[in-house]
Simulated scan of single mutants.
Amino acid sequence: MTPDDLKYTVEHEWLRTPGEQPESVRVGITDFAQDALGDIVYVSLPEVGTSVTAGSPCGELESTKSVSDVYAPVGGEVVARNEALDATPELVNSDPYGEGWLFEIVPSEVAELDQLLDAAGYEAQIAG
């Protein structure tokens, strides 16, 4: 199921507004993505304070099948990362929309959020 209250990217990431940090958005990967990747065994995330550009790789997810890039869904500054994933990367598989979140960004251009997919648009993309 694709939660209706999130925004989505064509790279299978979700954004929740607001994040826990002031003015931030929380980023993770979708259930579809974690299922396609298989068992996640290692997560590499951008450091807090890193500036990221929308659409550019900023981290990696390593699974038993492959290594996949994590793309910045919007440009801005990374203000938090899910440190729990260092010890338990499998949270991305077991709870992709909750405890398996990846990082938070303060967007430099809030308008970029309007260019992302809603749940129906994302479901149409993965069905298509």
Results as ranks from 00 to 15, higher is better:
70 V>R: 01
108 S>C: 03
58 C>T: 07
93 N>P: 09
25 V>W: 11
53 T>A: 13
21 Q>P: 09
72 A>S: 13
43 V>F: 05
3 P>G: 02
15 L>F: 09
6 L>N: 06
41 V>G: 07
79 V>R: 03
117 L>K: 02
62 E>S: 13
45 L>G: 06
58 C>P: 00
126 I>W: 01
90 E>S: 15
46 P>H: 06
27 V>K: 06
9 T>C: 07
25 V>C: 12
16 R>I: 01
33 A>F: 05
118 D>W: 03
82 N>W: 04
86 D>V: 15
69 D>W: 07
64 T>E: 13
63 S>K: 12
48 V>Y: 08
99 E>F: 02
41 V>I: 15
86 D>N: 15
6 L>S: 00
96 P>C: 06
69 D>F: 15
127 A>C: 02
3 P>K: 02
74 V>T: 09
83 E>M: 11
22 P>I: 09
63 S>C: 08
110 V>I: 13
105 I>V: 15
77 E>Y: 04
58 C>V: 10
19 G>Y: 06
34 Q>S: 04
112 E>V: 07
36 A>E: 15
122 Y>R: 00
85 L>G: 13
43 V>A: 13
12 H>T: 08
47 E>L: 09
8 Y>I: 15
54 A>D: 05
55 G>A: 07
77 E>Q: 13
55 G>P: 04
69 D>M: 14
16 R>N: 10
121 G>V: 00
73 P>L: 05
122 Y>G: 00
43 V>C: 08
51 S>Y: 12
72 A>E: 09
95 D>Y: 02
87 A>W: 14
29 I>F: 04
103 F>H: 00
75 G>E: 09
69 D>P: 03
120 A>W: 04
79 V>S: 10
71 Y>I: 11
92 V>A: 05
100 G>E: 02
25 V>G: 08
57 P>K: 13
83 E>Q: 12
63 S>F: 10
